[in-house]
Computed example of a mutant assay.
Amino acid sequence: MLFEFFYHKKTTRSGSIPFLTRPKALRLTVQSAFALFHVFLVWQLARHVAWAMGKTETYTQAPGAVDGWLPIVSLMTLKRWALTGQWDPVHPASLTIFLALLVMCALFRRGFCGWICPLGGISNGLDRLGRALGLSFPVSGPWRRILGFPKYLLLAGSLLGFFVLLSLPAIEAFRSGSHYVAAQARMLFFFSHPSTTLVLILTGLIVASVLIRNFWCRFLCPYGALLGLVSLLSPVAVHRNADRCISCGKCAQTCPNGIRVDQQQRVNTTQCLGCGECVAACPAPDCLSLRAGSRRVPLWLVGAGAVAVLLGFYAWARATGHWDADLPREMVQRLTRMALTTEP
């Protein structure tokens, strides 16, 4: 009975739905927690850069979690590991996080995109703003396919560049330079000292995200494209009982990525975040359900599973030395100063 309370769409006397069966509220809570964590990471990284540039004598290590912001480094370290069997000592957490995301999505759909990614949280917030202002409009039909093409083109170009064209000697040469060691610091500098071009691009993305639901996540993010392809392996998916469906279309209307849930029996698409919002919105009893294979599972399973996988990899990495960089402080300070005071 207790387990059923957590995932069946039962209401209380006041008509409210128990918190754990309200995926939108639960997702917002998890995303907000990770957003605050990323604010802390920025603060820690800023303290590290201040130390490296000689603005303070108090040493602060660059947080390993920031390596998750470096997808290019992740691909580079993955190829180097595959070819040499050596885990990168400069940005060890980059490969740890990358592998965690692949496992996460293979098990729990795009749980990272839907529950953890701070950009996903920002995108959801801009979508709510657009709909509240009456500015949001749907993208469907051929336009949806056309707009969805760029992220796969970016993904294909990235995979081709790193796994086919980029040689191991080239990777080793880049790793020996100051820009690689100071990649985290350079990224912070890039966004804290934005160029006019960057400001225009970010402004365009914000406006587009207000007008078009989840614009970045649905149509441009190559990372999301990769994780979406991996998520097709996931045993977890939303199922629709066609005999109980009343064709109200509420599931499709509430889906953050505009999936036509009402036209599918098993929602196994690269766009599905596993957020469970369609299940919560369905007014027909036992029409929509989240299942792992043939077994019904609670709506919070994807979020809880995604967080558990990430924390599991983190615990393993900390215990085995695959999280924080093991470099002499003097070298880090010298190379960071060199990287931030010279042109790319």
Rank of each mutant, 00 (worst) to 15 (best):
F3C: 06
E4S: 13
Y7H: 12
T11F: 05
R13A: 15
S14L: 09
S16N: 09
I17P: 03
I17M: 12
S32M: 13
F37A: 14
F37T: 08
V39P: 09
V39A: 12
W43R: 07
W43I: 14
L45E: 02
R47G: 15
H48A: 10
V49T: 10
V49L: 04
A52D: 06
K55R: 14
Q61I: 06
A62M: 12
P63H: 00
V66P: 02
V66F: 14
W69G: 01
L70V: 06
P71M: 09
P71T: 06
I72R: 10
I72L: 11
V73D: 01
T77K: 00
L83K: 10
G85K: 07
W87R: 01
I97F: 13
F98M: 12
A100T: 02
L101G: 05
L101H: 15
L102R: 04
F108R: 01
F112R: 03
G114A: 03
I116Q: 01
C117V: 04
C117R: 03
G120C: 09
G125T: 00
P142F: 10
R145W: 14
K151H: 08
L154Q: 04
L154N: 08
A156H: 11
F162M: 07
V164S: 09
V164Y: 12
S167G: 09
S167I: 05
A170Y: 11
I171V: 14
I171L: 05
S178R: 11
M187N: 11
L188K: 02
F190Y: 14
F190N: 14
S192Q: 11
H193C: 10
H193Q: 11
H193D: 06
T196S: 10
G204C: 12
V210I: 15
V210C: 04
I212S: 06
R213Q: 13
F215G: 00
R218M: 06
F219T: 07
L220V: 11
A225R: 01
L226F: 11
G228C: 04
S231C: 06
L233Y: 11
V236K: 01
A237H: 02
V238G: 00
H239I: 13
R244L: 14
C245H: 03
T254S: 11
G258V: 00
V261E: 00
V261S: 02
D262E: 09
R266C: 05
R266I: 15
V267H: 00
E277K: 00
V279G: 00
A281W: 01
C287K: 01
S289I: 07
L290K: 03
G293E: 07
S294L: 14
R295P: 07
R296S: 15
R296M: 12
P298T: 08
P298L: 02
L299R: 01
L301Q: 04
G303V: 07
V307Y: 08
V307R: 05
V309Q: 00
L310W: 09
F313G: 02
Y314P: 01
T320M: 03
D326R: 00
P328R: 04
M331A: 13
M338K: 15
E343I: 11
P344W: 07
